[in-house]
């Protein structure tokens, strides 16, 4: 029997700005099963980040609803077993790695022992006294991942986790995510990098203009080049429309 951990049910969102408006999501629905790495793919402005923002309660949908681990967004325990990591999330520039993590550890009441272990695993143990503004992009991404994982989530939401990273660091991040997936972590991923999708995803969904176009197991899309071709085809169809 399937164990659905994320349920997105007919969510719609329209952004109004003066006289213009954009339909960011149009009755989008999908489900993610426990242990999956679910990748949401689509061109810029297709609604991937809007979906994640609704899931993280930063934005309310106009219609529809979402459920994670059987909990609605209004449930006080909604965030207890989930984590969000965005490739462009920021921390206070003058705080050190250790100050940032201690703050988030206090917020989530999670163990510092696990955090120290994660710092070691992500190669940040020597950087605990370094300020956020002094970290390289790769170090910042690893710190964001440590912060997301220190709460031992059951579901991890990742928005463009390897954006701006060099191939070496991207590979380290992907390897770590694969390990976590093998341990049973459910991952929801948005990315433009086909290599992320190719090496991590177990199921892929394409969206454009906030509508679901196709959803299928990763292997149904062929190899990485075929996956990329499909992406380009969908993106260009959108331009023509």
């Amino acid at each position: 029997m399937s164990d659905i951990v994320v349920r997105v049910d007919a969510i719609s969102k329209r952004f109004e700005a003066g006289k213009s408006s954009v339909q960011a999501l149009n009755s989008l629905s999908f489900e993610i099963e426990r242990g999956e790495v679910f990748a949401l793919l689509g061109p810029n402005g297709s609604g991937k980040t809007t979906t994640l923002n609704i899931l993280s309660c930063l934005l309310d949908p106009d219609q529809g609803d979402v459920e994670v681990l059987g909990l609605k967004r209004s449930d006080p325990h909604f965030f207890d077993k989930i984590s969000f990591m965005s490739g462009d999330s920021e921390y206070y520039w003058a705080f050190t790695v250790s100050e940032i993590l201690k703050f988030y550890a206090n917020l989530s009441r999670c163990s510092w022992r696990l955090t120290s272990q994660l710092l070691g695993e992500f190669g940040l143990s020597q950087l605990t006294d370094r300020k956020w503004m002094m970290l390289s992009n790769g170090e910042k991404t690893r710190l964001r991942l440590v912060q997301a994982l220190m709460t031992e989530p059951e579901v991890l939401f990742l928005d463009e986790p390897t954006v701006g990273l060099d191939p070496d660091i991207s590979d380290i991040v992907r390897t770590k995510l694969k390990e976590l997936h093998l341990k049973g972590l459910t991952i929801f991923l948005t990315s433009h990098y086909m290599k992320d999708i190719d090496s991590l995803a177990s199921r892929v969904a394409f969206i454009k203009n906030g509508k679901l176009l196709e959803i299928a197991p990763r292997e149904d899309f062929g190899d990485i080049e075929q996956l990329e071709q499909k992406f380009i085809r969908y993106a260009r169809e959108e331009e023509r429309q």
């Binding site: 930063l58 965005s86 917020l107």
Partner: peptide, 13 residues
């Protein structure tokens, strides 16, 4: 200004 606001809210604060 530090753009950490969203990150804090994402923790369920």
């Amino acid at each position: 200004w530090s753009r950490e606001f969203a990150q804090i809210l994402r923790q369920g604060v």
